[in-house]
Simulated assay, not measured.
Amino acid sequence: MTLAELVSRANAGQVRALEVLSLQGGRYMLRAQLADGCQTVQDRRGKRYCLRSISEVRALLGQCPVLQALPCALVQYVAHDEACAARSGPVEPLRLPLRVAAAPGS
Rank of each mutant, 00 (worst) to 15 (best):
A102V: 03
A17D: 01
S88G: 05
A4L: 09
A12P: 09
V7E: 09
R58V: 04
G62I: 10
R52S: 12
S88T: 09
C38D: 07
V15E: 03
V91G: 03
S55Y: 00
V78L: 03
G26C: 13
A32W: 02
L34E: 08
L60Y: 08
S53R: 03
L6A: 09
V66G: 07
V7F: 07
C84P: 00
V20L: 10
E5P: 05
A59P: 02
L98R: 05
Q39H: 14
Q63V: 14
P104H: 02
A59I: 08
K47I: 02
G25L: 15
Q68Y: 12
L18T: 04
V78Y: 00
G26V: 13
R27M: 13
R27F: 13
Q14I: 06
R58T: 06
P90T: 11
E5L: 06
D43H: 11
V15C: 05
D43S: 07
A10G: 01
L96K: 08
E5A: 06
H80G: 00
R99A: 11
P71G: 03
G25W: 15
V100H: 02
P65G: 13
T2I: 07
H80A: 02
L6Y: 07
Y28S: 07
P65C: 14
G37M: 05
G105F: 07
A86E: 11
Q39V: 13
R58H: 05
S88N: 12
Y77D: 00
R48Q: 08
A10L: 01
S106Y: 09
Q24R: 12
A102N: 04
P65V: 15
P104F: 01
A35M: 02
V91H: 01
S88W: 07
L6P: 03
R27V: 13
G13I: 10
R44Q: 08
N11W: 08
V66S: 10
G37W: 05
G26L: 15
Q33D: 14
R95Y: 10
P93N: 12
V78T: 01
R95I: 11
K47D: 06
L94Q: 15
L61D: 06
A86I: 10
V75M: 04
R52M: 10
A12D: 14
S8H: 05
A85M: 10
L51Y: 01
S22G: 12
L30Y: 07
Q68A: 15
G25I: 14
K47H: 07
E92F: 14
S88H: 10
E19T: 07
G26T: 15
V78P: 00
P93C: 15
L98Y: 05
